[in-house]
Design a protein around this nucleic acid. Structure first.
Length: 307
DNA sequence: AAATCGGGGAG
DNA sequence: CTCCCAGATTT
């Protein structure tokens, strides 16, 4: 959950997830749909699918226990070198280095790294530096400390160097330039905009139609989806077009126009198969779906019938 | 090496 | 708005 996701964001998801799947065996025994239901809203759904697969592999090949070597950990889906080393140092007191976003920022500043951090050279030097600096006697404390340093003091835009325990030999601080000018970064690239139409189809009870997932990969893979089109016979029905909303991804900006259809009778229900009717008020029934569903529902409730 | 995967916190 | 977060995987 913490891969590319801030701790504060992940905490409520983590707590709920651990209540529903309190053990590796419980997670392995669950359906991927049940896992993704708990992941809904958190994003990067491949993490949820990979975690589920990893649990099953751990049960099958590792007697239900996490392996304790980097090579075995990296072989599990969703675990790369960074996560493997984090597990080894934080859980098993092995002197492995991590080089996550916080650590990269701390080390780039401390070493006054002239290289653009996205470059292969910088990547290599930062990993090398991280491994060199790792404590051989207290790897767990060291790993937690350098991450917390980046998260609390050596922050992106407003570092508090007066409180920093390594300010004395920090290269960026000594340089006279602004500490925030590190890490050096590549110029930003513009994010392309794409448009999409999504349909909100409500039945008489006020439940929303969600289609079964059609693919386990790609954007929102494995999640239930809003229809992008409707059967011809329904297009003549009264429908409402909501004002477009923006939904930003890492690589694209999606401008979504939602169209709303209210089914007043049962005539057209036979057109809706391979999916389910989701009642937004039923909080007990968690469905694997992207955050944009609730976003559009809120938009519809707030905006209402504007056209 | 570059692109692809969400969503939100913070400024 | 922009930047970036306890990155991994695919192309």
């Amino acid at each position: 959950m913490l891969q590319q996701t801030q701790v504060a964001t992940a905490i409520p998801y983590f707590e709920r997830f651990m209540r529903v799947f309190p053990s590796v065996s419980a997670l392995a025994a669950a359906s991927v749909d049940a896992v993704l239901a708990q992941w809904s809203g958190l994003g990067y759904y491949a993490r949820g699918r990979n975690l589920h697969k990893a649990a099953q592999i751990i049960m099958r090949d590792h007697a239900g226990e996490l392996p304790r070597t980097a090579a075995q950990l990296v072989a599990l889906p969703g675990i790369g070198l960074s996560t493997a080393n984090a597990i080894l140092s934080l859980s098993f007191q092995q002197p492995t280095a991590i080089c996550d976003g916080n650590v990269r920022r701390v080390l780039a500043r401390w070493s006054a790294l002239p290289l653009v951090v996205e470059s292969k050279q910088a990547e290599q030097q930062l990993w090398q530096l991280a491994q060199t600096l790792q404590s051989q006697t207290r790897p767990r404390d060291y790993t937690q400390a350098i991450m917390d340093l980046g998260a609390t003091l050596c922050t992106r835009s407003n570092p508090d160097c007066t409180q920093c325990p390594v300010a004395r030999d920090c290269g960026a601080l000594a340089s006279g330039e602004a500490v925030t000018s590190w890490p050096k970064r590549l110029p930003k690239k513009t994010r392309p905009t794409k448009t999409a139409t999504l349909w909100l189809v409500f039945n008489k009870a006020g439940a929303l139609w969600l289609a079964e997932p059609t693919s386990s990969t790609g954007i929102w893979g494995g999640l239930h989806q809003l229809p992008q089109s409707l059967p011809e016979t329904l297009l003549g029905q009264d429908n409402y077009t909501l004002s477009p909303i923006k939904h930003v991804f890492t690589h694209i900006t999606l401008v979504v126009t939602a169209k709303v259809v209210l089914l007043s009778d049962d005539r057209h229900f036979h057109l809706f198969t391979n999916g389910l009717w989701y009642n937004p008020k039923d909080k007990t029934r968690l469905i694997a779906m992207p955050a944009i569903v609730d976003k559009l529902l809120a938009h519809w409730l707030q905006q209402g019938r504007s056209s």
